[in-house]
Design a protein around this nucleic acid. Sequence first.
DNA 1: ATAATGTATGCAAACGTTTGAAAAAATTTA
DNA 2: TAAATTTTTTCAAACGTTTGCATACATTAT
Lengths: 344, 344
Amino acid sequence: MNSSRPVTIKDIARRFRCSPSTVSRALNDHPAINEDTRKNIQEYAKEVGYQRNEVSLSLLNKKTATLGVVVPTIGNYYETAVIEGLHTILQPLGYTLNICVTNENYLLEKEYLSKLLSNRTEGIFLSVSQETYDAGYYEHLESVIQRKTPLIFIDREYEDFETSRATVDDYHGAFAAVEHLLTIGYKNIAHLKGPNGLTVSEQRFKGYRDCLKKYEIPIREELIINTNFKVESAIVPTKRLLDLDFPPDAIFGVNDQVAIGAMRVILDRGLKIPGDVGIVGFDNSPISAYTYPSLTTVHRPGRKIGMEASRLFLNQLNGSGDFVHENIVLPTELIIRESSLRIS
Amino acid sequence: MNSSRPVTIKDIARRFRCSPSTVSRALNDHPAINEDTRKNIQEYAKEVGYQRNEVSLSLLNKKTATLGVVVPTIGNYYETAVIEGLHTILQPLGYTLNICVTNENYLLEKEYLSKLLSNRTEGIFLSVSQETYDAGYYEHLESVIQRKTPLIFIDREYEDFETSRATVDDYHGAFAAVEHLLTIGYKNIAHLKGPNGLTVSEQRFKGYRDCLKKYEIPIREELIINTNFKVESAIVPTKRLLDLDFPPDAIFGVNDQVAIGAMRVILDRGLKIPGDVGIVGFDNSPISAYTYPSLTTVHRPGRKIGMEASRLFLNQLNGSGDFVHENIVLPTELIIRESSLRIS
DNA sequence: ATAATGTATGCAAACGTTTGAAAAAATTTA
DNA sequence: TAAATTTTTTCAAACGTTTGCATACATTAT
């Protein structure tokens, strides 16, 4: 053992031959404490580096001022932005964010939730893992509900689960992206889709599909290929698209990463962007403005999602009696850049 | 108030008209408990969703199984990789990582450290914020030292501070990058530098400078311009470089972001990469392999850093008596891609 | 001098759990 | 049937802090 026991209130009390109550009051500037006593105790406390044991306080007050943020990944710009948004609102209110990364793994998600509850976290922001979603697991959420711990879904959600949600309007974002490509003259639009089952993937896919429908363009199944959101995962699918007898003249990527991967393959084939193939991504990640060519994309307000989710949490906290379930859907914004600007 | 009080051991004890001790032992499969009693209690506990209050246990055992990870940002690939590495080692050992993002802000860093100590965190991984570093603050670390909480520096460090560190050999990475450019035939190499004062910036700069010295190339001050690591911050500096009477024929960026920003400006001017200007970045972020042209870069083993830092922490924990201070420096690797391959 | 006030401090309980030691209950042995 | 043994349960303290209430002491008013 190498860690010296932290100084406690009792230690200080012994030193001054007074009771712990007095020390506690002195440290908290209680008015009923003699000015000299207060000063002496405070000085001594500082000198020996006393630090209040918040664990004991948490136990006493049943308040931990800690919130869990459970997300599948933190590698991408979007998640980071969400966390920043949460932080912006909640940090000033004294909350500590406990960020848990599930790596798209159900078991880890379950374990984190259980741990957060055991640690008496006062609220949980959850973006469910892909595995959880795929398998339709929800039992691990029951205990959160049972304990009436505020639970806010961010981004990914269960369609039929009774909680508050803050999500982005992926559907209309995708719709607008595809519509943009169509109105500018692209006719054969492929979609590099996200993993099946995830709300984000499916909503964007639906936006793509419905937009084509609206413009009475038949959907060619061979133009829709899955990816896993990562840049590498776009390479083979894009090659397959270009090798088709009737290759697409535009590609809508489920996110910027995938779009950037696609661009790379297209340029390698000697094709021009946007001349031969138009590209649109999704996210408006910082890099998208500086790729070559710069990437047309759909802005996804991560920071705002974080801030709205915070608001939902605070509403639940202050809500009288039963929870008020709100469902916030933030709009997206099409950012038009070079990759979709056909020189006509 | 809307949160129903969680079920406690006392509640269960009341229900079974037995003492809390019995319940506690029953739940923990203590051998001295009657088989039936154990079964009944465990069943009931499950039924009512009992969850052990870890806060009280933390207080009792003076163990929280929580570690703080204090980093300036989490937006970039590197930090994410480090966290993943920490996670890989420490999660299986039962530790929870409390990730704190300082946004390069000293006050926030200070507050986080104080909070972590108050919450009796058992160890802290710290990458100091830029502000902290610039101003040379260190008082906020004193209390960590005083409390003998294991403190591991990751990445950024104080030169003269007595703790364990896991860092990347930025110096030789930069040196190798510049040497590569020189041996391939580039003569006028500019450097888009990181913010002053940060170890990362300065080490890479030193690598750049010393390599030029070795090859007896005079250092031109006008070829060294500061950025803030972000892609946007490379735009104006690169323009300035290209506008020089004797513009550089290669640019070494302090990281991939900056290099990508530079590439964009260069391509916009109608110059060829790597024909007219060679580019090397730093980090080997996933995107760097798929930019156009793909980016030569220096691999920075973030995951490994996280794993090594974990090891350092565990060593300190188990270390007898005084701390053992270790200083791990991991090597980098030059990844040669298109942006520096001059067609000769 | 005594009562009434004001000031400063201490006591004890509480938060939820574990655990060594003691006690009680049940069983076996003599 | 009593003693010895085994099994099962309870007691009490501990972790560090806060806080309502009681208490002690000093001061002022009557």
